[in-house]
Amino acid sequence: MSIWGILLIAFLAGIEGVVDEWEFHQPIVACTLVGLATGNLVSGIALGASLQLVTLGWMNIGAAVAPDPALAAVVAAWWVSGPAHLPVAAGVILAIPLALIGQGLTRGLRHLIIPLVAQADVAAAAGNLHKIEWLHRGSVVLQGLRVMIPTALLMALPAAWIRLSFHVLPATIRGGLHVAAGLLVIVSFAIVINMMATRQLWPFFCIGFALGTDSHLSLVALGLIGVALAILYLRLQAPHESQSGNGPTPPAAEDDLDRELDDL
């Protein structure tokens, strides 16, 4: 029962890892679902939240393929919440090589799918819209299998082996895993900062850091300060520009929504 549930989660995560819509592949969702399926919700959520901080900087931009959180989250959660019962820190560490395997599979499938796409050209020439639709739906299934099959293979490894190989590790390494797992989040933060940082934005980073060290400020308060700073900066930057009567545009509406949700 729980095994079929996990394979279904793997299938959904595999689709989302490429489609990037409902975000089932993000560890905080995928690990929670695996925790639910195995009946160990608490450890699933703990792993999902810890792993989320490590993966939040991984993004597919343009034609680049980032490491794939889908395979990583599902299999690591199975090893942590499933019968192997690895500690959360071990799950976070093991997720990294799994994410690289997932990345390789994503790249591979993007090449393998070429003949299928070529079939769509043939169908278009014949005016056969139905065939194009089914070719696309077929590729959705392929993306799901991309993660489901490796998950099934890795789940076939006996839990005893996983536990044994963990306990074979020297005590210093086993103890150090949680230290190492705590450090990995830094890379994600650095990726996000590197993506956005320009000379004029570093002061905002400094203010954020200084306020972040005060543990009395809640996250919502910090979010409000950040949004307020952004509005002030934009206003002051272009004082000559009076509010022109442009109608509300969807991007602006989205921005408002962002703010509202930030304030939740």
Partner: peptide, 13 residues
């Protein structure tokens, strides 16, 4: 620009 400001601020925090 606005989103980047919020992003940098929150990353700092």
């Amino acid at each position: 620009l606005g989103a980047s400001i919020v992003g940098m601020f929150v990353m700092g925090a």
